[in-house]
Design a protein around this nucleic acid. Structure first.
Lengths: 199, 199
DNA sequence: GTCTATAAACCGATAGAC
DNA sequence: GTCTATCGGTTTATAGAC
């Protein structure tokens, strides 16, 4: 098996296992079993477990970037694009109920571990935050675009956390419905600061 | 040192360390160092680490119950009581920024570990949920009291998760302000189902 | 009740054969 | 590149002295 190929298999398996069982709880033995290689072979491709985490986050950043670009191609208006973000909670409902949000749960774990990779994991949030902010700016909400982006990020994190803990599907659907309603109101009603700017 | 006393010290230290560094990451050695006892002495008071977790959750349930009862004494109206819940995000802002929500982060971790104590940890959420539901019923929102309780729980979880990851104090204050505004609207505007019931 | 000593398993990481 | 064998450290948990 080629150099690149085995490395990619390791990162793919680690990506899945870190999501399903957590970073610390996932051992080399678990990944090795999934990839069908020996434990010693890891250290040809990576110098440490931290380096595998680094590669996993880099992979997730690339996948997220690609997804956001695809949303921009598929949806022409900012409101449609933000709807794609909200609907993630429905599209990925099954894995979210079982394992939570891949971004939120990783950041939460690395914060507890006070792990060096924490800052890099947070850039996953930043990627969504900057993308959402751009959409709200395009909606004419320049003055509070970042606050709206953070609000939406927080709302979706709350839904994922509670859905994962209590396993309530109806709660997810209800909250997604409310988020769509909230988005409609954001579009139709200008913010305080926008009105002040016009005055 | 008395039997009960040492046991309580162990549970108190474990409670704090589980919150600050996570359940799995906290070892007997860490707790022992904090309580100033030997590792072997644990097994006079507990049969396993799982049993310490059990005791910690039981302690948190009792503390939460006591806090909710105190809120009921301090605040006479349901809306004032719900405001106490929302203001938890301000009162506990410093620990939340550093370690997240004690309930949410524990449930998230135990879900990843597929740990037996998961169901018991979720009852911490249930305690808040049932209490909030009662307040919304008292506000005259009988038909959607549970949905409102879950919504508020989710919102606060999202704020805590994002605040912990990105360490944004202004975000917390802004979201708390919005939650108070949301609560005012809940009080002033009857729900769809309430209006249907009146028609 | 608390201690020391230690078992048994697992962890990340290394050395060296092929 | 991949393997086997193993090191050193940590983990939970036990045994037994005091």
């Amino acid at each position: 098996m080629g150099d690149k190929q085995t490395r990619d298999h390791i990162v793919d398996a680690a990506d899945r296992l870190f999501y399903e069982n957590g970073y610390e709880h996932t051992s080399f033995a678990h990944i090795a079993e999934s990839v069908k290689i020996s434990r010693g072979n890891f250290y040809y491709h990576f110098r440490s477990k931290d380096e595998i985490l680094d590669a996993v986050i880099t992979l997730r950043l690339a996948n997220t970037q690609r997804m956001l670009e695809q949303w921009e191609q598929e949806a022409q208006t900012p409101i449609e694009r933000i709807r794609k973000f909200i609907d993630m909670l429905i599209v990925n409902q099954a894995p979210i109920l079982r394992h939570g949000c891949p971004v939120g749960t990783l950041c939460t774990e690395l914060a507890k571990l006070n792990h060096a990779g924490r800052a890099q994991a947070n850039t996953l949030f930043t990627l969504f935050r900057a993308w959402l902010k751009r959409q709200f700016v395009a909606l004419g909400r320049k003055s509070d675009a970042d606050a709206l982006a953070m609000h939406l990020l927080g709302r979706s994190q709350g839904v994922a956390t509670l859905a994962n803990a209590l396993g309530d599907q109806r709660f997810v659907r209800r909250e997604v419905q409310q988020l769509h309603t909230w988005l409609e109101q954001v579009v139709s009603i200008p913010s305080d600061s926008e009105r002040k700017a016009k005055a």
